[in-house]
Design a binder for these strands. Sequence first.
DNA 1: CTCAGATAGTGACATAACGACACTTATTCT
DNA 2: AGAATAAGTGTCGTTATGTCACTATCTGAG
Lengths: 237, 237
Amino acid sequence: MNESDFLKNYDKRSFDTPLITVDSVLFTCHEQRLHVLLVKRDEHPDKGCWSLPGGFIDQTIDTCLEDTVRRKLKQKTGVDAPYVEQLKSYGGNARDKRGWAVTVCYSALIAFQACEAHVASVSDARWHPLDDIAELALAFDHETLIMEARERLRQKALYSIVPAYALPEQFTLPELQKLHEILIDKPLQKKSFRRRIEQAELLIDTGLKRSESGRPASLYSLKADSAEFTFLRNLEN
Amino acid sequence: MNESDFLKNYDKRSFDTPLITVDSVLFTCHEQRLHVLLVKRDEHPDKGCWSLPGGFIDQTIDTCLEDTVRRKLKQKTGVDAPYVEQLKSYGGNARDKRGWAVTVCYSALIAFQACEAHVASVSDARWHPLDDIAELALAFDHETLIMEARERLRQKALYSIVPAYALPEQFTLPELQKLHEILIDKPLQKKSFRRRIEQAELLIDTGLKRSESGRPASLYSLKADSAEFTFLRNLEN
DNA sequence: CTCAGATAGTGACATAACGACACTTATTCT
DNA sequence: AGAATAAGTGTCGTTATGTCACTATCTGAG
């Protein structure tokens, strides 16, 4: 039998394949706290629990996994997230009551202001402070997904400025430093922090921000695709 | 309807879900070259092409994705790989002629000697020098998977000694350094290399190895689970 | 048996990045 | 005007690394 005959007769629905979904841990920084976007499930299983934005692949419109992720995120936020990164896949027979299930988990970052209005208009979506999710009823193994994504973001904060995507397009260095301090849960030396960033040339200066009090701070934005660029050392202080 | 009624009536086979598989890029170091284990496909699609060891999840015996990976690898190598790490998932409608397909790609390392005999006895499995795979006919998008896994391993070589799992359990520092040099394709200063490792205390000294010529070299082996421990800086020389 | 060659491993100094912290500058509020 | 606050800099000591010469130990040729 040649390949085209094989494919003509092939029916992948004749196999019992695991369920496959994508899920995203969308982070933002709001009022000096890290938040995650959660969606209240209104269908079984785990009906009524909070879950990560995500779901099944639409084979008719998604050409790859990231298409699914961005589509699902846009439904909840109204905008395309500036940073989306695949983290890890979880698969097993115990994750989902419906049976063997695989989910490809992504992490994403967005500025709170960029989607504030749209999120408020979506009835089942809500930002939750990360420190509060232990008290929520979470669907499936999503608490694990969130915690592992949180840990990855903490690691990123040690050697990159990826977290900057959780801030508005323009931000000051003290604002960025504060975010890093939240992420790694430790105060940082401002001199060291500035040096690391200046040296790596990851940001561009875009003017001055008139401050409420104190000196005016320079506004920065991310240099094109500087996301993954690394500092030279780990942050230890 | 309550949840248990819902689950009773739920049939995941009524949906057309993508195909889902796992694949592993198993590396080893042999005769100063990096090799990858490939398997010759004897079924459609891409019959006759070389592919990565992997395949479908067996929902009756695998409880998680890594179970599938280790099971498939053991079929080809005869032993359990000492290092297995999930890298990335690939999904899309163009990867596999059978339709929308997702694969969870793992990277694994093993000592050549640990599985030399068994691999030789498996008719469809063979080690291929990494530099030669461009000339092979590879199935699906497996060339991409291999290249991205190769790049990840290169990165690991810059800040960890994970590559040591591609060596026998006991090895000398010059052997490890040579492997890193192969991975990052650049000569390294032995003094710097030794210092980085000694400082991080990633290895334990286990005796002396009588050399063919030159001074006898100390044998080392990995400290328990020191795999991911990092050096403090990137290797630049 | 001895010495050359090869390889393992060390000593030592210069450089670069970082930690720490005091200091300067600019703005707001009283 | 002066205190308070916050942005941003100067500077010094420490640490890790780059570089490279040097020592030590083995093999093998003559």
